[in-house]
Design a protein around this nucleic acid. Structure first.
Length: 326
DNA sequence: CTTAGTACGGGATCACGTCA
DNA sequence: TGACGTGATCCCGTACTAAG
């Protein structure tokens, strides 16, 4: 009896103290450094002790290359995947490849990810293996069709096992020098103090990991790196979007033209009052969508669909303007 | 060695704006 | 106004880890 009520009291106190804790500690970068919340800034405002459920989005990078800095990020990232594919994946140099990928430490300076806690715990060995084996198992990466998996956004879309979190971390590590420079500029603009921190990044001229010193802001002794808001997206499943795009732009047309016969007599088409036939994309998607591992079939069958989906992404998927904390 | 907990990917589902 | 298109969110299985 007593133990039960003590336990309930304990849980109550735990929840209560956690609420207070979150109220105090959910402070964001802008709050900490005295930037008014209503003032719009170029960087994404992050919580300081936890992580924001958001990711660096390779589609947004590839679609914002008119910005000189973003173009730099794009080129550096591409150089990274070219080297990874050319030197390690295609010749199947697993040991050397894992060594190359071992530099992808979980970057907790950015405060992005799924965890919500910003622990920055274990990593590399398994993460490097995950990335290497995922690419190695992809038909485009393994074969000589390298132009496809040299693009980070295609890797995110088509390589099973590499989702937003891993891709975001990879970009954060590879391009850390560019993001650090961006951070320094933002600190100058807003009058935020910085100090010197050592960081590693992928140098695309030498094709290897390099160390350098960057001027960065910090909170409780730990450095912080800011990210341009236009490159950040909320959790978003590109595989589903590509499936929907295929259903809408290819399979629908094939069904209306009779190229694909509707074998199951499902309601994939409806009749308007004026007699024209309209495809019901939602149902076609349901009937024909593929799991991520099989999307390469669509790439093969509809050879221009990747490029067109890329353009579609440019028009429809933006970075996030408003953030909500975990 | 066993088991409870955690983090992630990916499919499923929800919610909302739009258009017939 | 009801159904559709689409971005956002939820949830579950799996693989891994830490604790005992």
């Amino acid at each position: 009896m007593y133990t039960v009520s003590i336990r309930i009291l304990g849980i109550y106190l735990l929840l209560w103290s956690k609420t207070i804790y979150l109220m105090i500690e959910k402070k964001t970068f802008k709050e900490q450094f005295g930037i008014p919340m209503e003032q719009s800034v170029e960087f994404i405002d992050i919580p300081l002790i936890s992580d924001l459920k958001a990711f660096i989005d390779p589609f947004l990078i590839a679609n914002n290359r008119n910005d000189k800095r973003v173009d730099e990020i794009y080129n550096q990232l591409k150089a990274f995947f070219v080297k990874l594919n050319h030197d390690f994946i295609v010749p199947d140099q697993r040991h050397e490849g894992l060594e190359f990928l071992d530099h992808l430490h979980e970057p907790n300076q950015y405060h992005l990810g799924y965890s919500g806690k910003n622990t920055g715990a274990g990593i590399s060995a398994t993460r490097a293996e995950t990335i290497f084996d995922a690419l190695r198992n992809n038909r485009f990466a393994r074969a000589d069709e390298l132009t496809i998996t040299n693009e980070a956004h295609n890797v995110l879309l088509l390589v099973t096992g590499i989702g937003q979190d891993i891709m975001s971390d990879t970009i954060a590590n590879v391009c850390k020098n560019v993001f650090a420079e961006f951070t320094k500029e933002q600190c100058l603009i807003h009058g935020i103090p910085t100090s010197a921190f050592n960081n590693q990044y992928f140098d695309f001229k030498s094709g290897s990991w390099e160390k350098a010193t960057f001027e960065l802001p910090s909170y409780k002794g730990k450095s912080i790196i800011l990210l341009p808001a236009k490159l950040i997206s909320s959790p978003r499943s590109y595989a589903n979007h590509y499936n929907y795009f295929i259903a809408s732009n290819y399979i629908s047309k094939d069904i209306l033209s009779g190229k694909i016969l509707n074998p199951l007599n499902k309601t994939l088409v409806r009749l308007l009052n004026d007699g024209t036939q309209v495809a019901i994309v939602k149902n076609i998607y349901k009937e024909y969508h593929k799991p991520k591992a099989d999307l390469t079939d669509f790439v093969k069958t509809y050879s221009n669909s990747l490029n067109e989906f890329f353009d579609h992404a440019k028009d429809h998927y933006r970075g996030i303007e408003f953030i909500h904390l975990n």
